[in-house]
Nucleic acid binder design. Structure first.
Lengths: 143, 143
DNA sequence: CGGAATCCGTAAGGATACTG
DNA sequence: CAGTATCCTTACGGATTCCG
C-alpha cells in the first residue's frame, strides 16, 4: 500500500497552513534577496539598491516597507542633509535567516538537476523521445 | 562598528543566487501546498483538488505540470476508463520537504507576531500614535 | 539621498464551459 | 476522472518623473 492513509486527512488551506503564512511574507520577486542583503547587519538604502541587482527604487521601498510592517525589519533615520536611512533585521527577522539558508542551500545543491530535468522534459515533448542526460547542454547555465 | 564589513560584498543577483533558484520553483500561490499534499505518498488528481482548498483544476494542472517539468513530481497514469492519474514526489522532490518544513514551522511559530506587528504598524500610521500590543484584537485571526 | 507619484504592460490566476 | 480551452480581471512590477 503506497497510499499514505485512507483515514481522512486535514485539508490544506491557504488561510491556515504554515506554508501559506510564510509565503505570504517571502513569496515575491525581491523579498528574500532584500532580507539576504541585510543578513550581515545595518545597510543603507542606496547600498541595497546597488547590492540587489536589478531592483528599482520603487520595488526596494515597497519590499522594505512591507517587511517593516511585518515586524521583520527596522528603519533607522538619521535626520541629516542629505538624509541617511539604514535598515536592519529585527530579532524576529533574524529568526527567518536560518530556514531561508536551508532553502538557499537546497537551491545551490539541486538546481542543476532541476535545469537538467527541464531540458529533458522539453526535449521529450518537442521530439517525442526521451534523453538520458542533457548535462552537456546545460553546463553553461551553471553558476 | 555595526556595519558588517567595508570590504566589497558580492552582489545579490536574481540569476545566480540560491534563493532565486528556489523561488523560481516554489514561489507562487499553490506550489508548496501541492507539494505538501504529496508528502505522504501517491495521491490522485481529484483527491488533491479536494485537499488543496480553493485550487482550481486549471491551477492544479498547471502547478503539477511545472513540478513534473522540474523533475520534482512523477505522474502515473492508469489507462482505465475513467482514467486514474496519480502524482507523487520524485526522490529529488522529497529532498525539498525538509527545508520546506522548516519554513512551515517558522510560519506556525512566528506568524502571530507578524500579524501583531501589522496591526501595530497600521494603527500607528492611521492614528499617528503607537500601541504596545494588539494581541487582543488579532486573536480571532489565529488558527 | 531616499523616497513618492504616476503611467503602463505583462502575466498570474479565477470563472466557466467543454472533452476523451 | 482528469484534464483543455477561453475569457477576463487584477496585481505585480518596470520606467520615468518629481520632491524635501
Amino acid at each position: 500500500m503506497t497510499y499514505a492513509s485512507k483515514t481522512k486527512q486535514s485539508d490544506i488551506s491557504l488561510s491556515n497552513c504554515g506554508y501559506s503564512k510564510v509565503l505570504d511574507i517571502i513569496s515575491n520577486k525581491w523579498t528574500v534577496l532584500v532580507i539576504y542583503a541585510m543578513e550581515n547587519g545595518k545597510i543603507r538604502y542606496g547600498e541595497m539598491l546597488r547590492r540587489v541587482e536589478g531592483i528599482s527604487k520603487k520595488m526596494l521601498t515597497q519590499t522594505v516597507r512591507k517587511l517593516e510592517r511585518d515586524g521583520l525589519v527596522q528603519r533607522h533615520i538619521s535626520p541629516t542633509v542629505p538624509p541617511s536611512v539604514e535598515y536592519s533585521l529585527t530579532p524576529l527577522g533574524e529568526t527567518l535567516l536560518q530556514p531561508m539558508k536551508e532553502l538557499r542551500q537546497w537551491g545551490r545543491v539541486n538546481y542543476t538537476q532541476v535545469v537538467e530535468a527541464r531540458a529533458n522534459y522539453d526535449f521529450a515533448y518537442t521530439t517525442g523521445s526521451l534523453k538520458k542526460s542533457s548535462a552537456d547542454e546545460v553546463m553553461e547555465l551553471q553558476v
